[in-house]
């Protein structure tokens, strides 16, 4: 049973701007990376899923509820972390998160308990009693995540969660998201325009472009070996590629890098390794790196 299903989902804004264009997709459990350039329709999709924006055409179901008519029931079970700043400066994290827990429908006592738990999980300790106005960007992002988690949602929608963070803060936020998906058992959808981040934490990928589904794939498949060998030398690799070609091995040089098709040798990958070694010795080329080439997310967009 998919957590989210959309069928021919279309959203046109006034002025004939099409944000979503017949998007049909099924999203299951896990950590899902929703990738797309800025303006690809990620935020529009999130708002429709939350029942905050009516679709122009098509249908969206979240947790088996209709986003158009059962938005309130959906929002009770979904946590949302917006991209922009959204915290009042003059209250403490404890007070704010517990209030948002109650606004999500938790009784007062439960909201207090879960606030303490959740703030600890996101890594806010003594500072949680101080007004949010004095927090660093990293701490604010954690509070934003905590308020989305406080009511124990079944689904978490994070819009560009690493925005504005320094590299260390980015790493911590991604580690936290991975933990939420893996250990807390909550399905997380991360909308991001940064492929590298998605690659690190997501188990599934949904790529959209101009409001249309570009690709959906399990990421483990995706970053598997490609059957290509990546060779880096200390000088121009063109002569090496030519010599390999004479041996019947398909190789393409690009400056000091060369991509070798392992299958083209016919009789196993070790033949290819030996050939690369022998020919570079013959040419007095120093080998810097030999490795199996893996798919990278960028390939997705290149093929498409």
């Amino acid at each position: 049973m998919p957590l989210i299903t959309t069928r021919a989902l279309t959203k046109r804004y006034a002025g004939n701007v099409t944000a979503l264009d017949g998007l049909t997709v099924e999203i299951g459990e896990g950590v899902i990376g929703l990738v797309g350039a800025n303006g690809a329709g990620k935020s529009t999709l999130i708002k429709i899923l939350l029942g905050l924006l009516p679709a122009t055409e098509g249908e969206a179901r979240v947790l088996d509820l209709d986003a158009a008519t059962q938005g309130s029931a959906i929002r009770e079970l979904v946590g949302y972390m917006p991209e922009h700043d959204c915290l009042p400066p003059d209250v403490s994290a404890t007070e704010f998160v517990s209030h948002m827990g109650r606004v999500s429908g938790l009784p007062a006592g439960a909201a207090r308990e879960r606030t303490a738990d959740v703030l600890r999980h996101v890594g806010l300790y003594e500072e949680r009693y101080r007004p949010i106005g004095g927090y660093s960007t990293g701490m604010k992002q954690r509070v934003k995540l905590a308020q989305a988690l406080v009511h124990d949602p079944r689904l978490l929608l994070l819009d560009e969660p690493t925005n504005g963070l320094d590299p260390a803060g980015r790493d911590e936020m991604l580690a936290l998201i991975e933990r939420i998906g893996r250990d807390f058992g909550i399905t997380v959808i991360i909308a991001s325009h940064l492929l590298g981040e998605i690659e690190r934490v997501a188990t599934w990928l949904v790529a959209i472009d101009a409001g249309r589904l570009l690709r959906t794939a399990q990421l483990t498949d995706f970053t598997e070996r490609t059957g290509q060998l990546l060779v880096e030398t200390d000088e121009d690799a063109t002569p090496l590629a030519q010599r390999l070609g004479e041996r019947g091995i398909e190789a393409h040089a690009d400056g000091r890098n060369m991509v070798v098709d392992i299958a083209s040798a016919g009789d196993g990958e070790f033949t290819v390794y030996d050939a690369v070694r022998d020919e570079s010795v013959a040419l007095s080329l120093a080998l810097i790196r030999i490795e199996h080439r893996r798919h990278q997310l960028e390939d997705l967009f290149r093929d498409a």
């Binding site: 309130s72 429908g105 250990d183």
Partner: peptide
């Protein structure tokens, strides 16, 4: 200190009435 384990919530959810009361 992170590894205290995550606890879910199975208690009552008061929905929009609870939300309005809280505000």
């Amino acid at each position: 200190i992170y590894d205290i384990g995550y606890r879910g919530y199975d208690g009552p959810r008061l929905g929009r009435r609870g939300a309005i009361g809280a505000i």
